[in-house]
Design a binder for these strands. Structure first.
Lengths: 243, 243
DNA sequence: CGTGAGATTGACTATATTCAACCCTAGTGG
DNA sequence: CCACTAGGGTTGAATATAGTCAATCTCACG
């Protein structure tokens, strides 16, 4: 997958064409974007944007996973978002970056110069509409995460995390024995869930001992028993059947 | 303030005219909204929307404070948003409510039938633009709250909470001896901060003993020493000078 | 095959929760 | 006008959960 060259890909062939900020655009609007865009790639752990930096570009993630995180004065950090392909980085109307953006896997961005993009936004309702939808979806995700951070136990946090990954890697119908590749290191999981390394490790192995999951290698998990995994999340039986 | 009648207020005289979803609208667009809107008031603790309910209306908060919250299976609840005047409840494109919405003070809404509003949105870029801005602002707030929930100590949570209220009730320049009215009960504060009643009580009184704040009555706080209050939040010295 | 970063495990500790008793104070009715 | 009451709030002691510190392991890589 990583050997695709994005140097000169056409928007019409873009893998995120149907979900990204441009998804509602017609051919004319797409041509405008086509002329503005530039691709840029980042290696694992490379910082895409530093907090406080002036925001020169906004961008869609074409490929890979990026994380948004905030850090307190004494170094404690909390991940506040996980950006997947078709997600949008940066926002029109803001001149500074609000958090550190880091590539947790190799990442390719489709970038637009912020000022030009802002001008385009004012004249292109289809883009604003899509941006609004994207923002509202992220808001829903952020709010679910607030429940996890504020009220869930370490065990429930881990179970929720694995279930989320399992759901994403599934085609449609949930079935057992789903194998999952963690898109991040333990260290990043820790900051995502608001826990420590040791606690994350202990909870992974507790779930393993109980036969809910199996671990193989460093970043590979198999969800053996999805129903007991779900029970461990603390969530309603029927919640979140969207997304 | 509560004896204003909103039954027939004109949009042009509306207290939230310059900040709400309609803030960018021109006279023509405003007339369309004027003909769609209806006011509705709620008493303290009245539920405005239940989670899972079909979303008949979207609305702006004209007056009062409302809370958004989510509840886990076993009853643990987490507040995921605090809505103030000019904030927008509901979202075009969603047919169900994602969380419980409750009036924490007397609330007056300016409501629009969702379906009609959605049709208007498609034709009115000014509204979509503003909705996007509002959503992105809420997203910023949600992300700050994620840091608080995931990484801050009880003391830091309380200090951050008080500082936020102090900043809101200030005109502009920070000065000491700010008096603050809590817009919620201890119980709601608990769910906002992801703590327990006892812990909140203890931390309030610890800050009082240290002379950082004084308490009088049930819902009244005075922030005596804003700088030591800020030190207790764990935040960067210069962060969040927007909002 | 050796190395070192990443991950695990164990022992101990700290922080916040739980459980329980008690205290205010605003609002009520005599 | 005052005493009573109930709900919200406070305080204390015991407990639990996750964090800290430190030693050890293991896997992926050269």
């Amino acid at each position: 997958m990583n050997n695709i060259s994005f140097a000169s890909i056409k928007c019409s062939n873009c893998p995120i064409r149907h979900r990204a900020v441009c998804s509602r655009c017609d051919d004319g609007e797409l041509t405008l974007l086509e002329n503005m865009k530039s691709y840029k790639s980042f290696v694992v752990d490379e910082v895409i944007l530093w907090r406080g930096e002036p925001l020169e570009y906004v961008a869609s993630i074409v490929e890979g996973v990026a994380s948004l995180s905030k850090t307190l004065e004494d170094g404690r950090t909390q991940m506040v978002g996980l950006m997947l392909p078709s997600d949008f980085i940066g926002r029109p109307g803001r001149t500074k970056v609000e958090f550190d953006v880091t590539a947790t896997t190799p990442v390719t961005l489709c970038r637009f110069e912020r000022k030009r993009f802002e001008r385009l936004v004012l004249e292109t309702p289809h883009i604003v509409q899509r941006l609004m939808e994207i923002a509202l979806d992220e808001l829903d995700a952020a709010r679910d995460w607030m429940v996890l951070l504020g009220r869930k136990t370490a065990r429930e946090k881990i179970a929720t995390f694995i279930e989320m990954l399992a759901r994403r890697s599934l085609v449609g119908i949930p079935e057992n024995n789903v194998s999952i590749e963690l898109p991040m290191t333990r260290d990043q999981i820790v900051n995502y869930l608001g826990l420590t390394l040791e606690t994350v490790s202990r909870q992974f192995n507790a779930l393993k001992k109980e036969g809910v999951i199996t671990l193989s290698g460093r970043k590979s998990i198999r969800a053996v028993d999805l129903s007991s995994l779900h029970c461990a999340t603390g969530d309603d039986a029927d919640s979140d059947l969207n997304s």
